[in-house]
């Protein structure tokens, strides 16, 4: 059994040279900027930056796979906006009885850039940062341990659920449940996996909560640290730069 995380240790600057708290600041700034950046070119530039960082971290392939996972969502956005956006005026093209409009497609592009940028920035954080280091980093910078633990748990939730789903699916198949067939059969098999997954997740959460309690997680004392992880030089500057750029973009957006 291995730890459930998307993080893979690699000897790159993004993995080793940037501390977890700075990467968390990068993620939060990226999310704010994804909504604040007003132009396509700005959003495209941000995407290039995110993909560049992922390439630098040698995580481009895995993150593109993750981004492709959102393809259905993106296609849905384009179809709905292209056809039904209330601002639709300029006909872009016609496909039989279907009319697709320029305003809707441009709006869909804006939303898609936001989605892809947020996923890419999340990949930078999740794939290059050990969840084990995140909590310590957050607590060192004054966040309550519970808040730090929430961030760590969020980083582990998807792989944990995928592991759980795989185990439940095997168990259901071993008892004769078919996982293929028509839509109705697939829906039935989905329910057979979904119910136990929710139940086992709730039990795991309770077990984990007890495990933390019995080890003094809610003790009213100032935490200490077993291992000292020195923060690499230049991180304060990098964080300040990220925050400044984000604030500048937000102010620019509000003023324009």
């Amino acid at each position: 059994m291995t730890s459930v995380t998307l993080y893979r240790p690699r000897a790159t600057f993004v993995h080793q040279g940037v501390d977890p708290f700075t990467k968390l600041v990068y993620l939060l700034c990226s999310i704010v900027m994804a909504f604040a950046i007003p132009t396509f070119w700005g959003a495209a530039g941000m995407l290039v930056l995110n993909l560049g960082v992922l390439a630098w971290a040698r995580e481009l392939k895995r993150s593109l796979q993750t981004i492709l996972g959102s393809l259905l969502l993106l296609v849905t956005i384009f179809v709905i906006q292209g056809l039904f956006n209330p601002a639709n005026r300029t006909l872009l093209f016609t496909l039989g009885p279907v009319h697709v409009y320029q305003e809707g497609i441009l709006f869909a592009l804006t939303i898609s850039f936001r989605v892809v940028n947020i996923i890419a920035a999340s990949c930078v954080f999740v794939m290059t940062t050990s969840p084990a280091r995140v909590m310590d980093a957050c607590v060192r910078y004054g966040l309550p341990p519970k808040a730090g633990y929430v961030v760590t748990s969020i980083m582990q939730i998807i792989p944990t659920m995928l592991t759980s789903v795989a185990r439940i699916r095997e168990a259901q198949q071993s008892r004769g449940m078919s996982m293929s067939g028509n839509v109705l059969q697939r829906f039935r098999s989905f329910l057979a996996v979904f119910g136990p997954m929710v139940l086992s997740s709730l039990i795991s959460i309770q077990d984990r909560a007890i495990a933390l309690e019995v080890r003094g997680f809610s003790a009213r004392t100032k935490r200490t640290f077993y291992v000292d992880h020195p923060v690499p030089r230049g991180m304060v500057l990098l964080r300040a730069l990220l925050l400044l750029v984000t604030i500048a973009v937000v102010v620019w957006r509000l003023a324009s």
Binding site: P145, R215, G216, F217, A219, T221, R223, T224, F225, Y226
Partner: peptide
């Protein structure tokens, strides 16, 4: 050492 950290035990 996780529990010791929570209880603020020195290094």
């Amino acid at each position: 050492a996780f529990g010791l950290e929570n209880l603020g035990v020195d290094s």
